[in-house]
Amino acid sequence: MFELLSKSLVVFQKDLKLEFRRRYALNAIAMFALTTLVTVSFSIGPLDVEPAVAAPLLWIILFFSAMSGLSHIFIREEEQQTADTLRLVLPPNAVWLGKWLFNVLLLFALELIVVPMFCLMMNISVENLTTFVLIVTVGSIALSSVATIIAAIISLTSSRGALFAVLSLPIALPVLISGIEGTRMAMHGAAFERGLPDLQILFSFSVVIITISALVFEFIWRK
């Protein structure tokens, strides 16, 4: 277990170093998120946005931003022919765990910028901040988990870009539904107990996807 963790950290550190140096994914995600945010904010104009509208808009921005950047993690390895190097020097689960950690961190970093900007530009006040932060955090872990395993699958195919969103959407649908509902309630200021079922769904979904990913990744990775 310790070996798995330490080797996955080696992958994580390598990806982090590459990302800081060339910003492959960060630029794609940030540009998509910011342009969508500005477009949405201009189209809504000075209108007051109800939580029933704001919550889906926020999750649409988060979902498609994630889709625009999180697939790079495996596609880059295949395109630059470094995937075989990883296959030779690391056990499959260490590769998956390192890549998953990186995608989670990347989405968190994006949200640190996008979520406050979204609230500011749409003039939204979140009434129950604890529930809001928990829903967005656990929802992001779920979204990153889906994105990481789908990215591993589609990196082995030829029509990568189109497949990623097409495959991810149906699998991530429970995340979007619960994320939107939980966020809407948090914006409304509902008590934590009312947001708990959505939080539980997001948490359970994350556990299921992470477990399935850990079990099937070796078969995907070994071709």
Binding site: K7, V10, V11, K14, K17, L18, R21, R22, Q80, Q81, T82, D84, T85, L86, L88, V89, L90, A94
Partner: peptide, 19 residues
């Protein structure tokens, strides 16, 4: 079989050794 072009030779070797 390629190595990471955006890393130095030392960084590539450090990665491979640790991995």
């Amino acid at each position: 079989l390629q190595y990471y072009r955006d890393l130095t030779a030392y960084e590539n070797m450090q990665f491979i050794a640790k991995a």
